[in-house]
Amino acid sequence: MNFFFEVLIGGLLSGVMYALVALGFVMIYKASGVFNFAQGAMVYLAALSVVGCMEKGAPLWLAIILAFAIMTAFGIATEKFVLRKLVNQPPIALFMATIGLAFFIEGLAPMIFGSEPRALDIGIVDEPIAWFLDEWNMVISKFDLVAAAVASVLVATLALFFQYTRVGRALRAVADDHQAALSIGIPLQNIWAIVWGVAGFVALVAGMMWGARNGVQFALTFTALKALPVLILGGFTSVPGAIVGGLIIGASEKLAEIYIPPVMQDLFGGNFGGIEGWFPYVLALLFLLVRPEGLFGEKHIDRV
């Protein structure tokens, strides 16, 4: 039973890491209706910028500020040169443009900062917490716990930002109805620039967490693929949905990886590891059949 809880908690904590990436998606989708496939690439760019600046001799805090500046500039440029030109195109076209954007970043980032995998040291060690090991005989990483804390702070900040600031209110208005927002004088394009800046910030946090964990390398772009089932499970438009979805996906994927392959081995023989790769998707798919709008998504009403 101890082992079960260890796997469960490990899964929940890694789910928080997925939620970090998923948050960036939700931000942009909520405010502009763009499904930003480049979020994974942005995570990569952010982590690379931090590492790149540190290699040039900048201390960690400066590197983070510089990386944030890069991400903001990048977000604004994206809005200005790509999305603004695609206003009034169908959402699919915008989605495909963000795939193009993802490729663009994946080519550009390593050209500037170099493509070899590097370690990112942000001062948290990835080691089991002694207390859990002694008292409960469970291996729970300190790093995961810190990541979970960071994610909670981030979510709380975003929630407050959305709820109580002037900009946050404007963001919600834009998300609700572009035209109505425009007609009462909310500058749509500034708002979009802000959204992309905030998404860049979320990508920066996610990039630093993932980069510190697995090293800064091209594989960081695949975090987006991990975040997609989280999104459809939680609903595209819901910040809490991203968190809950992340927890569900993280926990169920780790449990499945431990408990399903032995069963299949008994049935068919052979090695069935690597279920993690597809299990979240199938889970999300089955879930969608029951609730097409996700856990917390807005119910979509079709009108002719």
């Binding site: 495909m96 193009g100 490729f103 080519g107 050209m111």
Partner: peptide
């Protein structure tokens, strides 16, 4: 890298 970049930009 330039190949990927040009690819994305062209799209």
């Amino acid at each position: 890298h330039i190949q990927i970049l040009v690819f994305g930009a062209l799209i």
